Amino acid sequence: MPSVARSVPVTPQQHTGEIPAISLRGVRKEFSGGVVAVHDLDLDIAEGEFVTLLGPSGSGKTTVLRLIAGFEQPTAGTVLLRDRDVTTAPPFDRDVHTVFQDYALFPHLSVLRNVEYPLRIARVPRAERRERALAALATVRLEGLEDRNPTALSGGQRQRVALARALVDRPAVLLLDEPLGALDLKLREQMQIELKEIQRSSGITFVFVTHDQDEALTLADRTIVFSEGRVAQSGSPQEVYERPTSSFVAGFVGTSNVLAGEAAESVLGRDGSWSIRPEKISVAAADTPAVPDRTSADGVVEELVYTGATTRCVVALEAGGVLSALLLNGGADGQPLSRGQAVRLSWKPEHEVRLM
């Protein structure tokens, strides 16, 4: 796994000119034993931006979230919220709320009283408290369930209660620590759409931590990929997916092929390492004429992996190396493929991305 020599400044891609909702300057976090979880990070997140922090376990993404929330103190550096230095401020003295994977609802309180709880702590009058809690429940589409106990709700409903409680006093920043991880696939996909709608309608800055690549790409205005405590790449989901800057990002965000060494020189006529996404590659019979404006490579089908709507075709190239192609309905030109079959792969040159 390649590491990045230093953390590069990560700036907002929108709302230019405004004071960022979050600014981290030279933030470093070391744990006992000399373990460095975050290396000298500079990061800006704009007001109203939906940012996902993406990376494998141990990459530093959750530590960054905890530093913003105040659950951890940086070893060095500064944490700013709306230009206010909160580096040493406790969590309750930051205009930030956190939604955890386990929801952390009070089982002995009704849904309404769970949502009201932050307002009770803030000594908001009872009538206003109820009005704002009911409005928050309406935002997450839980009208009519205010008297129910959380234990009587589904996982998706409990997640929405946790969101309503976090949103009820309109924090400057909402931090979400893998909140959809405990949900099944269908419910997780539904909640992804609803989360995006809630963020857009509320205008609150969302920072969402996940190790799920599809989730990060689906939700974000901007995806920040972490590796070994540093930022490996930052950009729009489309930019990070379509134009990865390193072998790590190409391999971690979605599935990618990498052509390098002699295989790259033989197939592409260039040295270096190059990424080509499987869905950009077409598969045809071996005797299909080459198309002038497309790169082509011959090989033999090594494996076919059926996934329902698509089939992943793994091809061992004559030039060396292996490429995977993603095919709808598992066929080439409408004809089924088989292991050991000779095929010709082709793709557009603009889909070849140089890796650093």
Rank of each mutant, 00 (worst) to 15 (best):
R120A: 06
P118K: 10
P118Y: 06
H108D: 14
D102Q: 15
L119C: 01
V111G: 04
A122T: 09
T139L: 15
R132K: 10
R129S: 14
V140Y: 02
A136P: 03
E131I: 03
D102K: 14
V115E: 02
L119A: 09
Y117P: 07
V99A: 05
L105N: 11
V111Y: 04
P118E: 11
P125R: 15
A122S: 12
L119M: 01
F100T: 00
A104E: 13
S110N: 07
A138D: 14
R120G: 02
F106T: 01
L137Q: 07
A138E: 13
E131H: 09
N114C: 10
D102F: 12
L119F: 07
T98C: 06
S110F: 06
R130N: 10
L112M: 03
R126C: 06
V115G: 06
L134R: 11
Y103K: 14
V99M: 02
L134Y: 04
A127M: 02
S110C: 13
E131M: 14
P107C: 06
L119V: 08
H108G: 14
R123G: 02
V111N: 13
R130E: 15
P107H: 09
L134F: 02
I121H: 11
V99E: 07
A122W: 04
F100H: 11
V124M: 13
V99I: 10
L119R: 01
R130L: 02
E116R: 05
E128H: 09
D102I: 10
Y117M: 12
A136T: 06
F106A: 09
L112S: 06
L119D: 00
D102P: 15
A136D: 02
F106E: 02
H108A: 06
T139W: 09
R129N: 01
R123Y: 00
V115C: 00
R132Q: 14
H108R: 07
R129C: 03
Y103C: 02
L134D: 01
V99Q: 09
T139C: 07
L137N: 03
I121L: 15
E131F: 07
L137C: 05
R126W: 14
Y117H: 11
A135M: 05
P125M: 15
V115K: 07
E128T: 09
A136S: 10
S110G: 09
R130A: 08
H97N: 15
A135C: 04
L134W: 00
Q101M: 13
H97V: 12
F100L: 08
R123D: 08
L109N: 11
A104Y: 09
D102Y: 11
R120E: 15
A133Q: 01
A136M: 08
A133F: 02
R113Y: 10
F100E: 13
V96Y: 00
A122D: 06
L112C: 11
V115Q: 05
P118D: 00
V111R: 08
V124T: 13
R126V: 10
V96D: 02
T139A: 15
L112N: 04
N114I: 05
L109W: 08
E116Q: 14
V99K: 07
Y117R: 08
Q101W: 12
V124D: 04
P107I: 15
V124N: 04
V99C: 15
L137G: 00
A127Y: 05
S110T: 13
E131T: 13
A136G: 06
L109D: 05
L137W: 01
Y117F: 14
R120C: 03
T98G: 13
E128N: 04
R120S: 11
L137S: 13
R123L: 09
R129K: 04
A104W: 03
A135D: 00
V124P: 01
P107Q: 14
A133M: 07
A104R: 15
